[in-house]
Every structure is written in C-alpha cells, then in structure tokens.
Design a protein around this nucleic acid. Structure first.
Length: 809
RNA sequence: GCGGAUGUGGCGGAAUUGGCAGACGCACUAGACUUAGGAUCUAGCGGAGCAAUCCAUGGGGGUUCAAGUCCCUUCAUCCGCACCA
C-alpha cells in the first residue's frame, strides 16, 4: 500500500476533478450571445444516449473538437461548443417495452450516465445550453416547424408503398432500409401500402446540390451527397397508347436512341395497369405478377444479377412517336415505381437490362448506334447513328441528344427534363417514442393542423408501448388522447397517431444551441445572425448522406421562408475515423474487444486518454486501439510533469531551444486547426525530449509548453502551471504567437548527393552563397572519393535543401 | 458496374512546392540504477553485409540531376451508390 503512494508521482484523478470544478465555477466555457469578439461555432454530432454508455470513438471526436475549441478561445474567439442529446428513437422504446417503464425514464437515466462520462473527460462544452430532443420545450418547436412545412404545402399525406419491416412492425425510410434489410433488426424489408406523411424533399434536390458550393465539406462527404441526390439530365417522352386516348410518359437519358425502342416496360405498380384492366386481356396474369413483386423483399427485387421476369400487357400497344411503330408494353419489376415516371422505353440494342429482357422474351432488337455486335450483347458505347431517321450519320452523342430533344420539343412529344434519385422524405413512424405529428383529422374538414398556440402536443403516459397488430402507433389505442375536437369546426375529431422520425429533432438542433432558452421562438433572429453557420461540424461517415441531407433540407426550407438568415447550416463538415478493437475489428460486445473509456480514465487519467486518442493516427481514418499506445502517452505526460523540477526563473526562452519553441508553436497551431492532431502531439513530444536534455528551463519555456499541450491535456497542464507559479490559469491565457524568423535555423545540415545518392552531409549557414556551399560539398572526403576520375556534368544546389553533383564516367 | 479512398519497418504512423524515407510513439534487445520493477535513465532497432556499400514506400514501366510524392499501367483492400432508365 505504502509503496503505491510513494511511487505515484501525482494523483491525476484529484487533479482532474479539481480543474473540472474550477472551470465550472468560473463559467470558463460559457459562450456569450452578446459578445463583440468574433464568433466561432464548433459542433459535434450530439449522441444518442444509449444504455451502453460512452464509446472510445465518442472520446476521439469530442476531444479533437474540444482541443480546437480551447485553442480558438485562447486566440480570442467567442466559441460556441455545445452538447445535447438526440434522445427519441427505437432503443429507448424497446427498452420501455421490455421493462414497462416510460421511455422518458430510461432516457433520463442514460443521459445522466453519458453526461457524467463526458464530464470526466474535461471537455469544454457549454453545459448551460444543454437540451434533449425529447424535452417538451424543444419538440414543441420541432412540431412548430412541421406545421410550417404543412402550411407551405411541403408536408402532405399520401398512400405510399413504404418499406415495411414485418418484425419491428414499422415503416422505414429508404435510408433505413438500405440493402433491403431493416437497419434496426436486420429482417428483410417488404413493401406495404400505407398512408404516410411526407415532406417534399425532392423539390429541393437542385437547391441541395447547388448549396454544396457554399460549403467546405471534405470530398468524400460531398461526393456522398452528390451521389445520393443522383441528378441525371435527359428527356421526358410521351408515347401514345394505340387505340386509347392516352399517353405513357417515360424518362430517358438517351433520347438519341429513340429509333431503337422496340418495347416499353412499366413498373408493376404503374397506374396504367389498373386503369386499363378491361383492355388488358391477361389481366389476371398481370395481377398475379404484381402481387408476387410486392411480396418480394427489396433484396430480391433489386438483385441486378437475377434473371429478368415480366409479363406482357396483352392488348395494350404504344406508338413510337418518332417512327410510328407499334410496340408492345410489358410490366417488370426491374422498372422502379419511384424513379422517373415508373415506365421506360426499352432500347435493347444499347441497354444491358433491356437487352437481357428482350433476349429472354424474344423481342425485336434494332441497332441504332454502330460499333458493337447486337446479336451478342447490348452495345453501350458511342458511334455513328443508323436506322435513326433525322439522326442518321451523326457521330457525337451530345449532338444526337440535343437534336432529338429539339425535335421532341418542336413536335410537342417530349421535353428536356432533369430527374433526381432523391425521394420525398417519408416522415411518419408508427411508433410511440417520437414527436407526435401535430395534425388532427376531422370528418368534416379533413386534415387540420393543431393551432400553433396549442403546441406542444405531448406524449401521454401509457402502459403499453407495443405497436398495435395492424402496425399503428401505440398511441392509437389511447382513446382519451386520440379523441379531440376539430380546431376548425369544433366537432369531434381524431389526432394523428404517427410520430416523427428520429431525423426530425436532429435536423435543427444546431439552431437551438444558439438560443436554447427561448420560449417565444425556436431561436431569435439576432442569435442566429450572430452565430451564423456552424464553422466546424464533426460527425461519422454514417451520417454523411441522410442526417446531413435532412438537416440541410430542413434548414433550406426555413431559409426560403425567412425563418433563418442564411441558406446553408454547416460550413465545414469533417468525418472522423472509427476506433477499432486491438484486433483491428469493429468493437462489439460479441467480439469482446470493447474498451470502456471509464476504465481508461480511472487507470491512466483523462489527459492520457485524450492525448492517446489524438495521437492514435490520422483523424479521418480508422485506427486500432492499443493499450500500450495509451501507456506511452501516459509516460509522455509523466515526463512533462517531471520537467517541473528543472524550472528556474526567467522571462525569455532558453537560447538553445528558442527556435524549436517557435517551430513547435507554429506546428501545433497549424496542426490543430487542420485536424492533424497526431503530429501536433508528436511535435510536443519532441519539444519535451529537448527540454529533458537541458539542465534548466525557464518559466517561460515551461509555460509555453504547458499552454501548447493544454488543449490536448487540459488538467495536468493547469496543475503544473499552478505548482510552478507560472501566472494566471491557462484557460485565461492567450495562445502563444511565433515569429516566422525564429522558425528558420541559421545553421543547417544538408545532404550532398552524387548522382542522387547521399554521400555526405555538410553544415551550412544562411550567409553562405552557392560558391561556398559548392566548395564545401566538393571538399567532403566521401564526395571526393566518388567524383575522382569522373567528369562533373553539373552541380545542383537547392537552397537549404540539398546539393546534387551529377557526374559522368 | 459507377464513384470515393487507401496501400510506407514487427505495429500505430511521419515526410511544404518532387529534395537525406521511416519523425514521434509502441513493441523488442542490451546495459545502468535497484531488495524489487508493469518505475526511471542510457544505447540500439527496415533488410543484407565485417565494412565500403547495396536493396527497400503493393507490382511493372516512365518523366527528372533527384520520385513515397508527378505520369501511364497493374494488383489488393476498405467504403459509398447500384436493375436510377
């Protein structure tokens, strides 16, 4: 016992607690809304407070942005670095179902645990602005904003083929059903028709695409967004239906191939099928196919490698508008309902899918672009147009497309169109633990919005949180909640029982941080004007598409309606890499490689954990955990601690290391700003190594090291600052400046190469001219050895870098 | 299939405009101090070689006085999108 006490150099737990209390007591990190300092808004994605507690991955990104915040504050900025809780969602609800407690309770407990864990890390969050999306005075405004969407015609209810998870009994957005499996439980997703609230996000496709120009997202995030929006330019073409006074509209990116159209395909859900059931001679067969298609899971249906299936709509024919040919109409599930018009013109000669379909069903194939062998495969390359009337002889694809579009528009059979992959946002969830959608259905008046003054529509206390058997929200069973009066006519009416998706609350939380206590507005215009865009927004790649698009869409809508002062919410978006287990695999309970940050804080201290997580590697890349690496960082901090015994009075940098200090200030400043934390730590280690070699260091030497290290390891540096009486607490200090002139050594060692191979090194100083350097280089013994009996062709001298002597035999 | 990224010692990873490859840390080896060491300090640490030197940044080619870095080509891994017309 005694041994332990003697050996322990310092008690990091006590030190950490002491300074965390100091910061809290002094409001060190509270941001002001009325400051004349320049603002800087740094945001980390607020966590979902799961029962599993904080992950070491959270620690990495929080510490990284914390370090940035601390530097910015010391540089004189008014920094907003807030934290809150994204607390609606399935896990809390499932916990509630299992344990028969209100999700509110579980969420409250989890938040407490999370908050404690986060606070133990000494992160400089402004806790005065904390809130959870589940707070009534927060979701009141989420509902308020939904009503704005409704008011502007941007929210609508529609019968939609939705992704349905038969296991969770919940409707899923396309985003949650990626790959055809339920994101939550992994069960196969099927299609189901259901009345759903939707937001017209597809109307904003172009704005969301163009808005990216106002941002500085890292490339991989930007491309993910662009792909997700999926813009493609082409044409809409109307095909007359033979003997019917109707047309079938298709979207195509290749109107130049119109003469090669030999059939059309509509999706199984396409409305022509129902509309012309009397004309379709094999309607029963078609209906059967349609039913089969709806039963297929998303995976089965979108498996591109499977053989094409389909049924001809017998009795229905279309007319190719450019050549008057009568062509067959088919239905097949390879045509998607929710893209384009849900119908395609098929050009088997020049499209792989159409080719496979035509081959299987023996449909005619007409070549319109020369270059391939259409008896073997679809030719998708470029070439001379043939069999194509007005386009014959053209060889440039773009010209052909332009000419055809012009023809279509002149003859009113089509027009240039842009299509987007981006769909409207399915906004309904048949779940309890979400914001109630503030709408009321009245038999007389239809859908009526809850009046603004009646918000929030709060969640009731209930005993069962299970969805009903027909998939309705558990709210549907609570008659006293459901039954209400129509705000319009006063007659009996019913509340909407669907709730909002998780993405709703997280679509505007960054605005609430700007003015979190406001009970008149979601945030005041003044506060939003002051804080402006989020300067740095950090999150995982898993949110690079959905969350980021939803939030941008939501924000842009608010902007278009004058509710926020700027069109884009986030300036920079950076994405951290994951922290993997020691074995290089993703941390998971089942693999037994989970590292609990609490244990690490207890054993090595928060400062060591923070330092290690920044040192672990490139911030944007995944990195494997290594407890030995953490120990190494603990050792580094111990060495910094021991330096205190070398400190002597002095207001100047020690001569021997003055240049290195200036260089280190420059490096750490730049590295933290550009998120190269690993090299920032490394340069501080180098500086520490040099300090160790000296007999004494001045107070100024030491203080500078402590300030530079402070954003990374804030507790121990404050403590040492106090122990050594180095002046005001670091949190109140200015970030040090460097002199560019002092970062340049006047004496330098450079390499001398002969034919590109290093043969010697020489010491030069800044006053030397090329002649002197040349002389010095040629006098090196090893250089002489390699150049004698050879003729020197030329000597290349790059100032301060290298000398290369080129010789010939 | 399309798009994005990555590939450097035993390991994590460094290397402005092309300019001494392997900074910094881990692991390891030897030594010092020790009753003790999961502490600390000193030295070593890409491979081959006694050495001079040679080889080495996924592979192959090229440009250049000089290539991890630029160009061409190829392989591997990871991620995103994917029957999107």
């Amino acid at each position: 016992m005694l041994r332990k006490v003697v050996l322990k150099m310092y008690n990091f737990s006590e030190i950490e607690k002491k300074w965390q209390e100091y910061w809290e007591k002094h409001n060190s990190f509270v941001a002001s809304n009325t400051s004349d300092k320049q603002k800087y808004y740094i945001l980390v994605e607020f966590p979902y407070p799961s029962g599993a507690g904080l992950h070491v991955g959270h620690v990495r990104s929080y510490t990284a942005l914390d370090a940035m915040s601390r530097v910015k504050r010391m540089q004189g900025y008014n920094v907003l670095f807030p934290m809150g809780w994204d607390a609606f969602g399935l896990p809390a609800e499932q916990y509630a179902i299992k344990n028969k407690v209100h999700p509110k309770e579980a969420v409250k407990r989890n938040i407490e645990v999370f908050k404690k864990q986060i606070q133990n890390l000494g992160l400089s969050f402004d806790w005065t602005r904390e809130f959870a999306t589940t707070d009534e005075d927060y979701y009141k405004w989420t509902q308020w904003q939904f009503l704005k969407f409704y008011e502007k015609g941007m929210a609508y209810k529609d019968k939609k083929q939705i992704n349905w998870c038969p296991n969770c009994k919940i409707g899923l957005s396309n985003e949650e059903a990626e790959g055809g499996v339920c994101e939550r439980c992994g069960h196969s997703v099927v299609k189901k028709e259901k009345e759903q609230w939707l937001l017209r996000m597809s109307d904003y496709a172009e704005k969301l695409l163009a808005g990216l120009d106002d941002t500085e997202f890292v490339d991989r995030v930007k491309t993910a967004q662009i792909n997700w929006i999926g813009k493609s330019v082409g044409a809409e073409v109307d095909f007359k239906l033979s003997d019917l006074d109707d047309t079938l509209k298709v979207f195509t990116t290749r109107p130049d191939t119109l003469y090669g159209v030999t059939f059309m395909v509509v999706s199984p859900e396409h409305k022509v099928i129902d509309k012309y059931k009397d004309e379709i001679k094999n309607y029963n067969e078609v209906l059967k196919y349609k039913e089969e298609a709806s039963k297929k899971s998303e995976i089965e249906r979108t498996d591109a490698t499977k053989e094409k299936t389909g049924v001809k709509l017998k009795g229905i024919y279309a007319i190719n508008p450019v050549n008057g040919e009568k062509i067959e109409v088919w239905t097949s599930d390879y045509v998607l309902t929710n893209y384009g018009t849900g119908a395609i013109m098929a050009v088997p000669a020049h499209d792989e899918r159409d080719y496979a379909f035509a081959k299987k069903f023996g449909i005619n194939i007409i070549e319109v672009i020369k270059g391939g062998d259409v008896s073997k495969e679809a030719y998708i390359g470029d070439g001379e147009m043939v069999n194509s009337g007005i386009l014959n002889g053209l060889t440039n694809k773009k010209d052909s497309i332009d000419k055809m579009i012009k023809y279509l528009e002149e003859n009113k059979i089509g027009k240039k169109t842009t299509n987007y992959r981006l769909q409207d946002w399915i906004f309904s969830r048949q779940r309890f633990w979400g914001e109630p959608i503030p709408m009321i259905y009245c038999n007389e008046c239809g859908w009526v919005p809850v009046p603004y003054e009646d918000l929030p529509v709060t969640l009731p206390e209930v005993t069962s949180y299970e969805p009903t058997d027909n998939g309705e929200s558990p709210l549907a069973n609570i008659t006293e909640w459901v039954n209400t009066k129509c705000p319009h006519c006063g007659k009996a009416a019913k509340r909407e029982t669907d709730t909002m998706p998780n993405w709703a609350g997280s679509s505007w939380y960054y605005l609430r941080y700007m003015d979190p206590k406001n009970d008149k507005e979601f945030a005041s215009m003044d506060a939003m004007k002051y804080w402006g865009m989020v300067d740095y927004y950090n999150g995982g790649m898993e949110h690079a598409t959905r969350h980021l698009l939803y939030a941008r869409f939501w924000h842009r809508f608010l902007y278009d309606n004058g509710l926020v002062p700027f069109p884009e919410p986030f300036k920079k978006r950076v994405a951290h890499g994951m922290i993997l287990g020691e074995n290089g695999e993703k941390m998971s309970k089942s693999k037994g490689n989970v590292v609990n940050p609490d244990d690490m804080v207890k054993q090595y201290g928060a400062d060591a954990l923070r330092t290690y997580e920044l040192f672990i590697g490139d911030y944007e890349k995944d990195a494997s955990w290594s407890e030995n690496g953490l120990k190494g960082c603990k050792r580094f901090l111990d060495r910094v601690y021991r330096l205190k015994d070398k400190v002597v009075e002095g207001f100047m940098y020690s001569k021997e290391i003055e240049n290195l200090i200036h260089k280190t200030i420059k490096k750490v400043t730049n590295d933290i700003e550009t998120m190269k934390y690993n090299t920032a730590v490394s340069s501080l280690m180098i500086l520490t190594n040099e300090f160790e070699k000296l007999e004494t260091i001045t107070k100024t030497d030491y203080k500078t090291l402590l300030i530079l290290l402070n954003p990374i390891a804030p507790h121990i540096t404050e403590e040492l600052n106090e122990i050594c009486s180095l002046g005001r607490p670091i949190v109140e200090c200015r970030w040090p400046e460097y002199l560019e002139s002092k970062t340049i050594d006047n004496e330098k060692e450079i390499a001398v190469q002969v034919n590109g191979k290093v043969r010697a090194t020489i010491k030069i100083d800044s006053s030397m001219d090329e002649e002197e350097i040349k002389k010095l280089a040629l006098n090196e013994e090893n250089v002489i050895r390699h150049t004698k009996d050879k003729s020197i062709v030329k000597i290349i001298i790059i100032k301060d870098k290298i000398v290369n002597i080129v010789i010939k035999d």
